[in-house]
């Protein structure tokens, strides 16, 4: 029984012809004496046939190649176009991004910078206010005096 368990680990590789020669010889010797393992290997062998039988019936569409070649042709043409394409499109995109950035910067500063304080009225000869805070009515009063 123990021998069967050890052998069964190798059955799959043996079927695929991937078992080292020494182990394959040991397995073959075991198979000669063990009916159960012979049945096991026959069942495993059937799996390959079952899977291949399904795909054996598969039929490839008549236009399979044409569809692949069309897709390949389209890929080649678009790749050729990409390689030949001038840089105008990327440049336009970069210019648009820069314009948008400039617009955003301008908008940002116009909203966040404080309004300039009202500038004092420039001094005109003879009409200079007495004090920096003097207003027009004050100046009129002074003139009248």
């Amino acid at each position: 029984m123990l021998a069967c368990r050890l052998i069964q680990r190798d059955l799959s590789s043996y079927l695929d012809g991937e078992l080292p020669a020494a182990r394959a010889a040991r397995l073959e010797a075991h198979l000669r004496t063990c009916q159960r393992c012979r049945e096991e290997i026959a069942a495993l062998e059937g799996i390959n046939d079952q899977i291949r039988a399904v795909s054996h019936d598969l039929q490839v569409s008549q236009d399979f190649d044409q569809r692949v070649l069309r897709a390949v042709g389209y890929y080649q043409v678009t790749r050729a176009q990409r390689q030949r394409k001038p840089l105008t499109k990327p440049l336009v995109v970069v210019a648009l991004i820069l314009l948008a950035l400039l617009g955003m910067i301008r908008h940002f500063f116009s909203r966040t910078l404080p309004l300039p304080a009202r500038a004092p009225v420039p001094a005109v000869s003879g009409l200079a206010p007495a004090a920096s805070g003097a207003t027009m009515p004050d100046r009129d009063r002074e003139r009248r005096r």
Partner: peptide, 19 residues
């Protein structure tokens, strides 16, 4: 040459994909 490879391998590739 690509068409030849296509004709050699279309069936096994399709079978693998189908499974």
């Amino acid at each position: 040459a690509f068409r030849e490879l296509l004709s050699r391998y279309r069936k096994p590739a399709l079978a693998l994909a189908y499974h």
